[in-house]
């Protein structure tokens, strides 16, 4: 039987959750015994190559490209997991949600103290993904099956969740794995 496939993506995140995935240390060798990595920054696959069992999403949606990637993951993955604070709640990027988009962009590109922008234009190249009016948590854009919290979630929690899902066992995330104080 072919190994189940895993895909991962970092949307509006800092890659910290991906670092935490790598933080499972030598167990990554066990992991690749269990699974095959599909589209992921870890192996730099840009496109899905087949149906995936699990999609791990780091970060929320701050622009149209994030939305497209997330919808692609939803279409290609059986189980979608929001990994970490930003995917679940928007996190640090969502701090802009209380400020109108116009003010954000003007501060960043026109009026900021270190800005040099003689043409006085907000970047509008078609290649740049358009920003959303606010940062959305993933489950407001597509259906999400599981949430692993933390900033980042501890490697052990990720490991416990993945191995449980892959071995079709009940997920056990004891309190120690999910407390952050």
């Amino acid at each position: 039987m072919a190994k189940p496939r895993i895909a991962t993506a970092s949307l509006a995140g800092c890659f910290g959750c991906h670092m935490s995935v790598l933080d499972i240390d030598e167990r990554i060798l066990d992991l690749i015994e269990l699974v095959e990595f599909d589209k992921s920054p870890i192996n730099d696959f840009k496109k899905f190559t087949g149906r995936c069992a699990i999609g791990l999403i780091e970060g929320g949606c701050c622009n149209a490209e994030n939305v497209h990637v997330l919808q692609e993951f939803r279409a290609n993955c059986d189980i979608l997991i929001s990994l970490g604070e930003c995917a679940i709640c928007g996190g640090i990027p969502a701090m802009r949600n209380t400020i109108p988009l116009r003010e954000c962009l003007e501060e960043a590109y026109l009026h900021g103290p270190t800005v040099h922008n003689p043409r006085g234009r907000i970047p509008d190249d078609p290649e740049i993904p358009r920003l959303l009016n606010r940062v959305y948590p993933c489950h407001e854009v597509v259906k999400v099956d599981y949430y692993i919290q933390g900033c980042p979630p501890p490697a052990d929690a990720i490991w416990a969740a993945l191995t449980a899902l892959l071995s079709n066992k009940p997920m056990e995330l004891p309190y120690e794995l999910l407390k952050y104080d």
């Binding site: 116009r102 509008d124 358009r130 009016n133 959305y136 407001e140």
Partner: peptide, 26 residues
């Protein structure tokens, strides 16, 4: 399709597109 009915990409990007004078939809 697993998409959330309440999320509307056109509406969510309308402000950004208006700010740069883009008239086409996404």
């Amino acid at each position: 399709d697993g998409h959330r009915a309440a999320f509307d990409l056109q509406a969510a990007t309308a402000e950004a597109r208006a700010l740069i004078g883009e008239t086409t939809a996404i």
